[in-house]
Structures are given as structure tokens and as C-alpha cells.
Amino acid sequence: MRRLWAVFRKDLAIELRTKDSLNTMLFFGIVVLVVFHFALRSGEVEARAAAPGVLWVAFAFAGTLGLNRMFAAEKENGCLEGLMMMPADRGVLYLGKMLAGTVFMLAAEAVIFVASLVFFNLEVWGELPWLALVFFVGTLGFTAVGTLLAAVAVNTRMREVLLPVILFPVVLPVLIHAVEATALVLGGADRGELKLPLAVLSVFTVVFGTIAYLLFEHVLED
């Protein structure tokens, strides 16, 4: 637990100092929003209907960037090697990285979301806590499997390029449920209906979190 915390704090400290990933994630997320505005020819489509999908696409792209950056930084000076030599269970490295990735993604999501309020003209004050819950649970699902696959991608010849290609098909269930849950909240549906998507997202997180925790060390070794 102490070690998990150390990994998390280290990533956070580096990020706060350089702000490399967060800036890129934010900027890219907002670019995605703008691109979608034109792609969907907003105005003709009702904003509330399009918003959940567009938001999650922006989150997913930003998250992919963030996860990639996190592992690319570990590769730079052979730091990953140093980490692997430590007498800590290598699963702990996964948990620490996943935690850091989740926090970065949530931070980026908050800003992207505010930008989308402006771009899409949304009024959501009353639904904010529910949206936050959906974002949180959905992001956990995304990073649970994203952290594992980012470690896979960074070890291949293609490096970071490969991550979206292998991550998006796997993470599709998360995106589907997160989009639907967001749509339910924005559509003012009965809160009880949120149970199913939130439950599925949680199950996804637990299942893939466990698999990743157990198999992470095998991904790192060569």
C-alpha cells in the first residue's frame, strides 16, 4: 500500500512539475469537441443528444494520450527497468499507475466538460453530481484496461501508435455504457435506470483490474 502510494505520488509530482500530459490531454480533448461540432453539423442535431457520445470520444482520446505519455516517460531513461528491480510486487506498479492515470484523466475530463457546456449550450447544474459519478466510474473502467494495454503498446516496435488500435475494441463496453449513462443523466431519466450501466462499468473495472494486477508483471518482462 505504501509502495502503491509512492508510485502514484511520483507520477503526480512529475506531472505537476512539467504539466506535459495534462496540457496535451486538455488541448486534444477540446480539439475533438470542435472537430465534432463540424462533423455533426451541430445545430441540426440536438446538442443534448450528441453531447454524451462526443464527450466520451473526447475523454477516450485524451485518456489514450495520457496513458501513453505515462509509460513513454518510464521508458525514457530505463526507469521501468529500475522499477521492475524493486522488491515490490509488480502488480503494485499497475495499481499505482492506474490510480495516477485515473486522476489525470478526471482532471482533463473536468475541463473538457466545462468547455462542452459552452460549446453545446448545456444547462446541467442539477445533474452535476450524477454526471461526476458516471464520469468517475466510466474512467475507472477505461484506465483499468488502458493501463495494462499501454504497458503492452509501449513495449512494441510501434510504441505509442499501437495503443488506440488495441485499446478501443477492448474498451468498447465501457464506452457504450458510459455514453448511455451520460445520456440518461442529461435526458433527465429516472436515476434508478443508472443502476445497470454503473453496475456493468464497476464489474468491468473489477474484472479487468484483477486480470491486469495478476498479469502485469508478465507484460513487463522480456
Binding site: 494495454l149 513495449n155 512494441t156 488495441i166 486480470i211 508478465h218 507484460v219 518482462e221
Partner: peptide, 26 residues
Amino acid sequence: LVRRYLEDPDRRAMIAAVFGIVAFVD
């Protein structure tokens, strides 16, 4: 694709196995 971009056979086998497990559970 993952297999294709890994050159070391031992490493390829292991990473592919991990991905195969993830894919099937998914």
C-alpha cells in the same frame, strides 16, 4: 497486430497470451 510488432519470441508469446485472455474475457 500486437504479435506483429513484438520481435522477441518469448516476450511476444507472453504479451500475446495476456492480450488473448483480455480479449476473450471482453
